[in-house]
Computed example of a mutant assay.
Amino acid sequence: MIRKAHAQWRGTGRDGTGDLTTDSGVLSHTPYSFKTRFESEPGTNPEELIAAAHAGCFTMALAFQLQTAGFTPEELNTEAAVSLVQADGGFKIEKSALTLRAKVPGLDKARFDELAGVAEKNCPVSRVLNAEITLDATLE
């Protein structure tokens, strides 16, 4: 399976602008720039997209873990907060902090923590990130 996205950039790093498009069409000429990345101009940025990918990947991985263990989640809500820091003369994604709030009928906290930990360690996005990953999981 191969998934593709395309980036186009015009101009310098600080003053230029770009857009991102995915083959699925979910992103179609979506703007990104220095201002969408480091300020608050509307548009997206790579870290936001990595956060979305990590939240989605982890949540789906947990849904599969729960299904295999015989549980059906009523709801899984995950936030991923990706931290970009200056390091070694450039920038680095230092951390992805996952915060999960889950409603899973019939599941005890110990088993929930175990399944969430397996999902966090084995979702493909977690496996590709060269960053600290933390998980704060709450079973409601």
Rank of each mutant, 00 (worst) to 15 (best):
G16V: 03
G16I: 05
T17F: 11
T17N: 08
G18Q: 06
G18N: 12
D19I: 10
D19G: 11
S24Y: 15
G25C: 14
V26E: 15
S28G: 08
H29K: 15
H29E: 15
P31Y: 07
P31R: 10
P31H: 11
Y32S: 03
S33P: 03
S33L: 00
S33M: 01
F34I: 10
F34G: 06
K35P: 00
R37Q: 06
F38V: 05
E39I: 05
E39D: 04
P42E: 14
P42F: 03
P42N: 05
P42H: 09
T44K: 00
N45S: 02
P46F: 07
P46H: 09
E48W: 00
E48C: 01
E48I: 02
E48H: 00
L49G: 01
I50Y: 12
A52H: 08
A53P: 02
A53S: 06
H54Y: 07
G56T: 02
G56L: 03
F58G: 07
F58V: 08
F58Q: 11
T59G: 12
A61D: 02
A61K: 01
L62M: 06
A63V: 11
F64M: 13
A69G: 12
A69Y: 05
G70R: 04
F71A: 00
F71Y: 13
F71K: 08
T72G: 06
T72E: 03
T72V: 03
T72K: 11
E74S: 15
E74T: 09
L76F: 07
N77C: 12
T78Y: 05
A81F: 07
V82W: 00
V82G: 03
S83V: 13
S83W: 10
S83M: 13
V85F: 03
Q86Y: 10
A87W: 05
A87N: 04
D88N: 14
D88R: 15
D88F: 04
G89W: 06
F91H: 15
K92P: 09
K92V: 15
I93P: 13
I93F: 14
S96C: 13
S96F: 02
A97I: 03
A97S: 09
L98H: 04
L98E: 01
L98G: 02
L98I: 07
T99F: 10
T99V: 13
L100P: 06
L100S: 00
R101E: 14
R101D: 10
R101F: 10
A102I: 04
V104Q: 05
V104I: 09
G106N: 12
G106H: 06
G106V: 08
L107G: 10
D108E: 15
D108M: 13
K109W: 08
A110H: 14
R111K: 14
R111V: 10
F112E: 00
F112P: 00
F112I: 02
D113F: 12
E114A: 12
E114G: 08
L115W: 01
A116V: 10
G117Q: 04
A119H: 01
A119W: 05
A119P: 00
E120R: 06
E120I: 04
N122P: 02
N122L: 14
N122C: 07
C123Y: 00
P124Y: 08
P124I: 03
V125W: 05
L129Q: 01
N130Y: 02
N130V: 07
N130K: 15
A131W: 06
A131L: 08
A131N: 02
A131S: 13
T134R: 12
T134V: 04
T134L: 07
A137G: 15
T138E: 13
L139Y: 11
L139A: 00
